[in-house]
C-alpha cells in the first residue's frame, strides 16, 4: 500500500516537472514562462520529497526534507520576483491575449 502511495507521489511530481519544462518552451512571453518554471517546479520537488520522506520514514530524513522544501519555498518566489521585475523594468514586450487568426 505504501509503495502505491509513494509511486503516485513521485510520478505526479515528475509529471509536474515535465509540464514545467514543456511550459518554458511553449508559453508566449517571459512573464508567463516564469509562472510555469517556478511554481510547477516547487510543487513537483515537494511531491518527490514527500515520497522520499514516506519511503525512509525516519526522523532525520524527515527534518532534511522539511528543510529542503522550506528553503525552496523561500527562495523560488524571490528569484521569480526579481526576474519578473527586471523584465518589466527593462520593458520586455508583454503578450496580452489570444492570437486571433
Amino acid at each position: 500500500m505504501t509503495e502505491v502511495i509513494i509511486g503516485v507521489l513521485v510520478l505526479t511530481g515528475s509529471f509536474f516537472a515535465f509540464i514545467a519544462s514543456l511550459g518554458v518552451v511553449r508559453l508566449p512571453d517571459v512573464l508567463v514562462r516564469m509562472h510555469a518554471s517556478t511554481k510547477a517546479g516547487t510543487l513537483s520537488a515537494g511531491l518527490v520529497m514527500l515520497g522520499a520522506a514516506i519511503w525512509f520514514w525516519d526522523l532525520a530524513v524527515a527534518f532534511l526534507v522539511v528543510a529542503l522544501v522550506l528553503f525552496l519555498l523561500l527562495t523560488a518566489p524571490v528569484a521569480a520576483h526579481m526576474i519578473g521585475r527586471a523584465a518589466v523594468r527593462t520593458g520586455v514586450k508583454m503578450w496580452t491575449g489570444r492570437e486571433e487568426d
Partner: peptide, 8 residues
C-alpha cells in the same frame, strides 16, 4: 508568487 497563475 508560489500559487501558479499569479506572480508578484
Amino acid at each position: 508568487s508560489l500559487t501558479p497563475g499569479t506572480l508578484s
